[in-house]
Computed example of a mutant assay.
Amino acid sequence: MKRVLIATDKPFAPVALEKISTVIKQAGYQLNLLEKYQAKVDFAEAIKTADAVIVRSDIVDREILDAAQSLKIVVRAGAGYDNVDTGYAKEKGVVVMNTPGQNSNAVAELAIGLAIYGIREFFGGKSGGELRGRTLGLHGYGYVARNVHRIARAFGMNVKVFTRYSKAQATSEGIEVTNSLEELYAVSDVVSIHVPARGEHIGSVSMDVLKHLKTGAILINTARKEVVNEADLCRFMEERPDVKYLSDLEPDCSAEFKEKFTGRYYFTPKKIGAQTEEANTNAGVAAAEQIVAFFEKGDDTFRVNK
């Protein structure tokens, strides 16, 4: 009997857990649950006998992988998988998958919500603006950005995008693709970042790009903090008092924001982009189904460490 561990410091919603459990048990597998664990050693102990593990933002590093004695597959219930040491997992013969697109609408709705919050002056009583008729620049065009585009069109926004890898997709949907990231930032009233924290995207939001932002622009980050050069961001915010920055994660330089940029920023208390019951359910069930398909059919469609 295959043993599937769900290891989540931030647990799945009860309705999601019930549906995940149904998928696992219908396959004839044993389900083990580790929630709100207090220490890494708890995770290491729980994973010892697991054949598969589903995680969310939980860290699966060398120590955890070495503790696993029977592990064949790790599934990150969500799109980003920088919390998993994919290279070492590959060395150990462990497949790593993610569940792309399953929480994209939740993150997209947060991005638009942050844009509204920023343009309406943080609901503080000042006269703000409206999104209708303004230009939204999408930095990247993956699953989340495509949902942001869908919602932004309903608000009457003009949408442009810069992407290296999804130009055909964007063009087919009638979106203008800019020639450079700098051009995107220069023409957008609101810029929403949607690139992963790897490769050329690390630190890509630098002073060289930020300096092109138009007057009064709003920068939204629901991706990862690693894609922003934080030293450049703080310097830019000091030089450009007209710009606002709203993020689904607190930057390492948050103390400087609190000291210098009051009324021009907002950070969620913790990363909440995917924290909806619907996203919980979609990503969790997809993870369970991928595990079953992997063991029963050898399906590794969503493998990220080939």
Rank of each mutant, 00 (worst) to 15 (best):
G129A: 06
G129P: 04
E130W: 11
L131E: 14
R134Y: 09
L138A: 13
L138G: 08
L138F: 03
H139G: 10
H139A: 15
G140K: 11
G140N: 06
Y141G: 06
G142A: 03
G142H: 04
Y143V: 13
V144P: 04
A145P: 12
R146D: 01
H149G: 00
R150T: 13
R150Y: 10
I151F: 05
A152M: 07
A154L: 13
M157F: 02
N158D: 14
V159K: 08
V159W: 04
K160D: 10
K167A: 14
A168D: 15
A170I: 08
T171E: 15
S172D: 09
S172M: 13
E173D: 15
G174L: 08
G174E: 04
V177Q: 09
T178D: 02
N179W: 00
S180R: 08
S180W: 14
L181W: 06
L181F: 01
L184Q: 06
Y185A: 10
S188G: 07
D189A: 05
V190C: 06
V191S: 06
V195S: 02
V195C: 01
A197M: 12
R198E: 15
G199D: 14
E200S: 15
G203M: 02
D208T: 01
D208S: 09
V209H: 09
L210W: 01
H212G: 07
H212D: 04
H212S: 15
K214A: 10
L219C: 03
N221Y: 08
N221E: 11
N221M: 05
N221L: 03
T222E: 10
T222Y: 07
R224T: 08
R224P: 06
R224Q: 10
V227P: 02
V227I: 14
V227A: 03
V228G: 03
N229D: 14
E230M: 00
D232G: 01
D232C: 05
L233C: 04
C234E: 11
R235N: 12
E239V: 00
E239L: 14
P241E: 12
P241A: 14
P241M: 12
P241S: 03
P241Y: 10
D242H: 09
D242I: 00
K244F: 08
K244H: 13
K244T: 12
L246N: 09
E250H: 01
P251Y: 00
P251E: 01
D252Q: 01
S254P: 01
E256D: 08
F257Y: 11
